[in-house]
Amino acid sequence: MADKTIQLKIKRQPNPEVAAYWEDFELPWRPNMNVISVLMELAMLAKTKDGKPTTPITYDSNCLEEVCGSCAMLINGKAHMACSALIDDLEQPIKLEPLSKFPIVRDLAVDRKVLFENLKRVKAWIPIDGTYDLGPGPRQSEAQQNEEYPYSRCISCTCCMEVCPQFNEDTGFVGAATIAQVLLFNLNPTGQMQAPERLRALMGDGGIHECGYAQNCVEICPKDIPLTKAIATVGRAVVGQAVKDLFTT
């Protein structure tokens, strides 16, 4: 067992202006490793498989327990969180690439601020009057909490957008995560008061009608968020809102 190794192929791109290329890496196997612990090890090694000095690999990470959403990348071609990708579960050589639908920053790091912009577009917040003491919020049943909670666990990893056939520059589609957040805020008793605004933000270009129900999103989501259910529910509400708007203007 002493000489068991881990083999990797990593896509490198020093900056957005230059072409990408592949580098091969090899390092000793240890039990219980994940992709991040391998990348940490490579930073210390700073050598390719054939001993050529190279730069440490740039990637995003923070929590290392799949809750901050930083470390999404393509692992053996599939969008996955690197911190929860256990080496022993992966076929080797392990292929690491950046997500393909977002502007590259460097190596495995991409720029995903589009999701945060989309959350602004749909006003994904409860517009409280102020932070002064106004007593408790509205009462909610346990059942209601159970319904909301899964959506509140979205880690903004953008995996659902990466795999969505409709998410691209042509459609400007907001993606499944944003739609699920609309549902979360529209379910909240206070958030409900602004539901029409959020629904209207999902009409028109890039809105919910772009979704082709391909269901890739729900399969990839690391937090098992019921995305297709959210899309269906919000989709109906958007249609309802459009009809209502037609008759009131």
Partner: peptide, 22 residues
Amino acid sequence: PGIIDLLDRMGVTFNRTPEGLL
């Protein structure tokens, strides 16, 4: 206690009792 109320008002999905309280 006021901070918890505020967070509740901001929509935090706190667990509930059968009576609908936190």
